[in-house]
Simulated assay, not measured.
Amino acid sequence: MPRTTPRRTSALVAACAVLVLVTACRAPVDGTAPVTSSTPDAPTSTAQPAPADGAAPTPDAAPAAGSPPTSSSPSAPTTPGPEPDGTPAASPSPAARAVTLPAPGTPFEYQLGGADEPAAGAGVVVRDSTAAPTGRYDVCYVNGFQTQPHETERLLRTDPGLVLHHAGEPLRDEGWPDEVLYDISEDDLRQRVAERVGAAIDACAAAGFDAVEVDNLDSYTRSLGRISTTDTLAYAALLVERAHAAGLAFAQKNTAELTTQVRALGADLAVAEECREWEECDVYTSAYPVVLDVEYDRAAFDAACAEQQDPATRATGLSVVLRDRDVLPRTAPGAVHESC
């Protein structure tokens, strides 16, 4: 099972300009018109991806992406890193295929802690890459900027050069000490790490997922200054390109302060943890047509739902769920699954 991903909070930035949405021919699960991602730098679509058929792949046919999570509370907002000194231009693959998005506001489920049968009204399901897609609109979780716990020691033995080191030791995430940061500080390293993570992205596509959620975009804030925002964006561009080449939409995960730049690379939607709690939802919704928000605090969830029910404050592209911090399956003690 995957690790949980309680929000690694980032500083709030000014909202981006609203981008124009275009309709797509694929019918979404709730019967309303879906959208395709549209950005000034997005690649030209050439073919529709194969729809998910709901067939369950075996776990070893999908990329290994994690181990059982441990409970963790979201941290206080971190001080953002230095401002980017330029957004790398995306270089889409000529073989990139068209990607689709769910209709804005489609109810979703966040199932990283274990797969459940989705509720009847859920049109979007986020699951770990080791789980089977549902045949609805399926988003595949991949840890893109750090190792998964079960991979860490093996990578340190077989290819330690891909890991960021400090004072001779691999640099670990203090919140998740069994994860180490990938070294994306140089172009050749970015290419090698992107190839490694790209294999997991390709496996998500082969399994039948529609999009990929790439976690730990904010790893640069834990790099002791060794990784810059420019390095982060250059690497993110490679992952966006890889996802699109596989026919998958690319979801930005958290890190509100880089929203403008990541969207400009061609990212298609956003998955945000506690954007209402930290008052960042408008940063994402002003940039992306589809934003999936996971709240872990009841008061923040209730506030988000109240705003979504009021026409004066409703954000068309926002979908909100309340989850327990371990994102447990429904049958587990302490599990929380609610949406509005």
Rank of each mutant, 00 (worst) to 15 (best):
R7D: 13
S10V: 14
A11L: 06
C16V: 01
L19A: 12
L19K: 08
C25Q: 14
P28W: 04
D30N: 08
A33C: 14
T36M: 15
P40H: 04
P49D: 03
P51N: 03
P51S: 02
A56P: 01
P57L: 05
A62P: 00
P63E: 00
A65E: 07
P68Q: 12
S71N: 07
S75L: 02
A76W: 10
T78E: 13
G81D: 15
D85H: 10
P88R: 00
S91Y: 11
S91K: 07
P92H: 00
P92V: 02
P92C: 01
S93V: 06
R97L: 05
L101H: 06
G105S: 04
F108M: 05
E109W: 00
Q111K: 04
Q111P: 09
A115E: 09
D116I: 07
R127F: 04
A131L: 03
P133D: 02
T134A: 01
C140W: 07
Y141A: 13
Y141F: 13
N143W: 03
G144I: 13
F145M: 09
Q146T: 15
Q148W: 08
E151P: 08
T152Y: 14
L156E: 08
L156G: 13
L156K: 14
T158A: 11
P160E: 05
G161H: 07
G161K: 12
V163F: 07
A167N: 09
R172P: 12
G175Q: 13
P177W: 03
E179S: 14
E179L: 09
V180A: 14
D187S: 02
D187M: 00
L189P: 04
A194E: 00
V197S: 10
A199V: 09
D202L: 10
A206T: 02
D215H: 11
N216A: 07
N216C: 06
Y220A: 13
S223A: 13
L224M: 13
L224H: 15
I227F: 13
S228G: 08
T229S: 14
T230H: 12
T230N: 14
D231Q: 07
T232L: 07
T232P: 12
A234S: 11
Y235K: 00
A236D: 11
V240Y: 01
R242Y: 05
H244L: 13
A246L: 11
G247W: 03
G247I: 00
A249L: 06
F250V: 14
Q252P: 05
K253Q: 15
N254R: 06
T259D: 05
T259W: 02
T260W: 01
Q261E: 15
A264F: 00
L265C: 01
V271G: 10
E273M: 06
R276G: 10
E277G: 03
E280G: 10
V283Q: 06
V291A: 11
L292K: 03
D297F: 05
R298N: 04
D302P: 03
C305Y: 07
Q308P: 08
D310E: 08
D310P: 15
T313E: 02
S319H: 08
V320W: 01
L322S: 01
R330G: 03
T331Q: 14
S339T: 15
S339V: 13
